[in-house]
Amino acid sequence: MAPTANRVPYMLGGLTFFGILLLIVTGVLLDQFYNPAPLGAHDSVVYIVTRVPLGWWLRALHYWGASIVLVTVFLHLCWVFARRSYRPPREVQWWSGVLLLLLLFAFAFTGTVLRGDQEGGEALAHAVAGGTLLGPLGAPASPDFAPSTSLLARVHNAHVGLLPLLLVALVALHFWLVRWLGIHTAEARTSTFAQHLRRLGGTALLLYGALAILAAVAPPHLGYPAVEGVEVTKPFWPFLWIYTFENSLGMVGMIVAPLVVFGALAVVPLVDRRDDAAGGRPRWVVAAGVAFLLLFLGTLLYGAIAPQMAHLGM
């Protein structure tokens, strides 16, 4: 491998993977005590936090692990964009990465719902409302889709069954492409994979240690059981940018904002194909990338400081 691969910016994807491993382990343990029945879900989370030995810490590790994974995957995306590593022959690698990002957001969303507290209940109500806006395509988000079971149980099924299956498939594709195409550098391959794994594993273990401390000193809160038909909370922080668009556009913003963002990410390899020898990246792509980043961070920040608003029925 190229020695460059052992630098932290090039290890962000690998660190995301190690973060996902932590989420799988803590998730499997938490799921032994979780009850996906609508009337029992919140109680089971209370039980995990208050009665299961180390349950509060496992839940905190899962929460902070999810947050860190979203940060590292976002930084990984920014680095790949900055390096223009999406150009031929790496378009499929970029697209699989975009799908993985989308999948991680889906994990974060379904995980929020599973808590069964007010924030989770409102998230689920938003999913139902969004599904209604999407018409037949949004039918799976409707409680009517499978009358024999609850929507919460189906969200749990997605979180622990369907989404992990997709994740494994996409991660396998992403890794296979990395192995096949190598990392994007002209440097000679003078380092070994064992050396890379040593650096990556060491950094991941330091990250685990930091997460263990963070989980111990700042366990995440749990809200009161959800009261349906009411909106008094804000979403989990990675969704605050969508919340900002909802504040200004209403419920449509919840559909339009992710479509625009993920659509824009998907077309990046199609609009920037110019070789370095031919003058490098067009300036407008740089400007669009920077504007996009600023808009994303700005809306995230605004969502955090804006007063709470109700959107359902807007």
């Binding site: 209370v46 936090v49 208050t50 509060w56 810490w57 749990l222 009161y224 909370t233």
Partner: peptide, 16 residues
């Protein structure tokens, strides 16, 4: 409905 968190006691013993 409230956005306030529950005040749940965390009983972490010396072993934990």
């Amino acid at each position: 409905a409230t956005a306030q968190p529950m005040a749940l006691p965390v009983h972490a013993g010396p072993g934990e």
